[in-house]
């Protein structure tokens, strides 16, 4: 592997054990446990403030957890900067508000990190970037700046940018929540394609259609804890949990 890292190729992609996270005295995560196999697609849902974003932001250390263990691809996430760097190289992330770099073209957005973090030669980085832009179906926008694109196009660039690092796990933090309704499907289509190619994905989203179609497991969070974890057909039709049923009736109810 180019980065010469020591991440294992066997074992679960991600293991979260007894994770606690506090903001001041507010307990945002309560002893969360989650294990994700390689190639698995997990959809995380739950009411706002339930801790779902906090949880996936802990996985690549955008938030620091206070207790418990996170092991990503066999590497434990702790204060070791080397481990954090290694995990961030292997974990891609897509944000609600895209967070593209506005002072660079689409192509430069996609090439920067492979060049300065993975130390890829420019020509390689450009070829990879163009390949992934093709994959998210906007190769013709490569020389434009993010501000010239629509929301849906920007989010697809953000996905391509993350993929250019050739990560083993992709995290999606409400990728369609900031989009106009007519642009949601173009982003979801790209995510469905990615899922069908075997990417390990953890998606925080309220798109229940996407969950039904793609997820291997749906995780429902409320009040900072995982309330229920089930395959989609069981989750949507046969949930035994009162809070889950109430949430589902709210998001599916009309």
């Amino acid at each position: 592997m180019i980065s010469g890292n020591s991440t294992q190729t066997a074992g679960p992609a991600l293991r979260i054990e007894n994770l606690d996270k506090y903001y001041g005295t507010f307990r945002a995560l309560r002893s969360v446990n989650l294990s994700v196999e390689r190639g698995e697609k997990i959809v995380v849902c739950g009411p706002s403030g339930s801790g779902k974003s906090t949880m996936i932001r802990c996985i690549n250390r955008l938030e620091q957890h206070n207790a418990g263990r996170i092991t990503v691809l066999g590497t434990e996430l702790n204060d070791d900067v080397g481990n954090i760097d290694e995990i961030r190289r292997e974990v891609g992330m897509v944000f609600q508000h895209f967070n593209l770099f506005p002072h660079m073209t689409v192509l430069e957005n996609c090439m920067l990190s492979p060049m300065i973090v993975r130390r890829k030669p420019r020509a390689d980085a450009e070829a990879t970037a163009r390949r992934y832009l093709e994959k998210v179906r906007i190769p013709e926008q490569a020389m434009k700046f993010p501000g010239q694109l629509s929301g849906g196009q920007q989010q697809r660039v953000a996905i391509a940018r993350a993929l250019c690092m050739q990560p083993q796990i992709m995290l999606f933090d409400e990728p369609t929540s900031a989009l106009d309704p007519e642009m949601i499907s173009e982003v979801l289509d790209v995510m469905v394609t990615l899922a069908s190619e075997g990417m390990t994905m953890i998606c925080v989203t309220h798109e229940m259609g996407f969950a039904r179609r793609v997820a291997d497991r749906v995780v429902f969070m409320d009040g900072g804890e995982i309330v229920e974890e089930a395959p989609p057909e069981e989750f949507f039709t046969a949930s035994r949990n009162e809070r889950t049923r109430q949430f589902l009736s709210q998001v599916l109810g009309h």
Partner: peptide, 18 residues
Amino acid sequence: VAKGQEEAAMALGMRYWQ
């Protein structure tokens, strides 16, 4: 500069000076 900019850079594995 939006806070998300630095988060995106972190998520892409960039170090502090990068």
